[in-house]
Design a protein around this nucleic acid. Sequence first.
DNA 1: ATTATAGTTGAATATGTATTCAATCGTCAA
DNA 2: TTGACGATTGAATACATATTCAACTATAAT
Lengths: 120, 120
Amino acid sequence: MSRNEFSCDCNIIHKEAVDKVLNKMPSENTFNHLADLFKLIGDTTRCRILFSLDQDEMCVCDLANVLNMTKSSVSHQLATLRRSGVVKCRRSGKEVYYTLDDDHIVKLFEIGLEHINHKG
Amino acid sequence: MSRNEFSCDCNIIHKEAVDKVLNKMPSENTFNHLADLFKLIGDTTRCRILFSLDQDEMCVCDLANVLNMTKSSVSHQLATLRRSGVVKCRRSGKEVYYTLDDDHIVKLFEIGLEHINHKG
DNA sequence: ATTATAGTTGAATATGTATTCAATCGTCAA
DNA sequence: TTGACGATTGAATACATATTCAACTATAAT
């Protein structure tokens, strides 16, 4: 009744389990946001940027040197992080300084690192 | 001295800050692992699979129905999750049942959800 | 053995996205 | 106002990966 479209190519085998999960299932939108959040930190370059900014406020050139990448590349990633509200920036003279702007991200980041170190 | 290759196209502006960060910087390898971890849950389909398995052990057909996707697509993603040690499976008759096999993942997952709900 | 269903797999396709490149803007100093 | 440098941007390129498709394996029932 509520699921009249069959994109799946097989039968439900355990109806109870399926219904139980469907009832608790958050919206498609929630999962999109959630995936976007993890996707944001699911990139080596952005991870390294976030780690760096967690140590110190930095301008684009400094970051480029730390990461050994071009200004352009770093700037593109910073723009992505900024659009997501994870970092913020301020201009001072010719430089633009970036800082972290999201506590949750750092927390996720730390738990992730912990996980890596425990599991090798 | 330690950094003789210049892939970056600009000067270091704040040497102290750069050195400080470089000294604390984990290895390239660590960041790759970390990014891979987040990449794994940085996908809507895999998020929904993980959420479902957190509710109940499920076989592929059940998951396909919950997610409204083909068996094949679900199976591919399950293989990815299995390769990463996040889920495990057991066969019983014709069905293969999947369960979560990683506490940390669920924790990250929950913190992520919390973050989403707080920020809208 | 044959058939049906559950699940997997490899290759092709489609899509998303990180980096590069060239052009441009903003600020400062001469 | 010109030149130099920090930074941003859009388009092109290069690369990664999710889904589709078709073929296949595994198990069970007839």
